[in-house]
């Protein structure tokens, strides 16, 4: 026969021990250890390098993000972040329907380029219906049309020492006391030459709307939305990201987000 083991006093003692640890959860002691630049946080952030390496190892260089059918476009593409840049150059270009827009391609290339929208539209094009995954957690399916970045890079003849493609943008973000900072982003050469990586000028069959990054935005379908810079001003090929912004490879990265956003 078994005995009834529980006794009330012992139960209450145990319950008291557990209950006394609960306020620890609410304690803000962790906050300091996790602020930008703190050792604990920087150590934990190394897990992103591991994720980057493992995904690069597991996922084929040219394996495609899932593409969808027309019937799965059930809504407009949800705009996020900047939706109407106020930069003076941008406003002037916008008011001229982007007729004077030029995309500059420079840095580590043999042949720097300056391409108009018409020139970009006359290059090979790719249309893809893909799911946009925002870092916040939501997803939205839309049809994107643009020129493969690889075609533009081939035209500019990238030097062998180039390791990153850096995108400079017209939109800025208000950082409070630190003032304004221009949006920029960067990807590695493998993602840059991926077949689905395009400079998009079309959305859902029409021209790219202002709110979604007109006249030109990046699509990097195997990463999260914040990598897909909008309002592209210029593209630079670089061997190192230290010279840009705070050196983390993007405006959001400078604010603490991971450079590799494949997860």
């Amino acid at each position: 026969m078994s005995r009834i083991i529980i006794d009330r006093r012992r139960f209450l003692t145990g319950a008291g021990i557990v209950a006394s640890t609960i306020p620890l959860v609410g304690c803000d002691a962790l906050d300091g250890m996790l602020s930008n630049g703190a050792t604990v946080r920087e150590t934990m952030a190394k897990a992103n390098d591991l994720t980057y390496r493992v995904q690069r190892f597991l996922i084929g260089a040219d394996s495609l993000a899932k593409e969808f059918s027309e019937s799965e476009i059930r809504q407009g593409q949800r705009p996020n972040g900047s939706t109407d840049p106020t930069d003076a150059t941008y406003v002037a270009l916008r008011d001229g329907a982007f007729a004077d827009y030029r995309l500059e391609i420079g840095g580590l290339v043999d042949r720097p380029l300056s391409l108009s929208l018409d020139e970009l539209r006359n290059m090979p094009s790719r249309t893809q219906i893909t799911r946009h995954d925002c870092v916040e957690g939501w997803s939205c399916i839309a049809k994107w049309t643009g020129v493969p970045l690889a075609a533009v890079l081939d035209e500019a003849r990238v030097k062998p020492e180039a390791r990153y493609v850096v995108f400079r943008c017209f939109d800025t973000m208000n950082l409070g006391l630190s003032g304004e900072a221009a949006y920029y982003e960067s990807i590695d050469m493998l993602d840059a030459r991926h077949p689905q990586t395009i400079l998009a000028y079309g959305l859902n069959g029409g021209p790219l709307p202002i709110a979604n990054g007109a006249p030109l935005r990046l699509r990097v379908e195997r990463q999260l939305g914040y990598k897909m810079a909008k309002y592209l001003r210029s593209i630079e090929l670089a061997s190192d990201l230290a010279a840009y912004g705070q050196g983390k490879g993007g405006l959001w990265e400078d604010l603490g987000y991971d450079w590799y956003a494949g997860i």
Partner: peptide, 20 residues
Amino acid sequence: GWLTVPSYQDLATGRVVHFF
């Protein structure tokens, strides 16, 4: 806030902690 790390709104840090 008492149920999140960090206690204030900070998606970037939440992701760093979560993936580690």
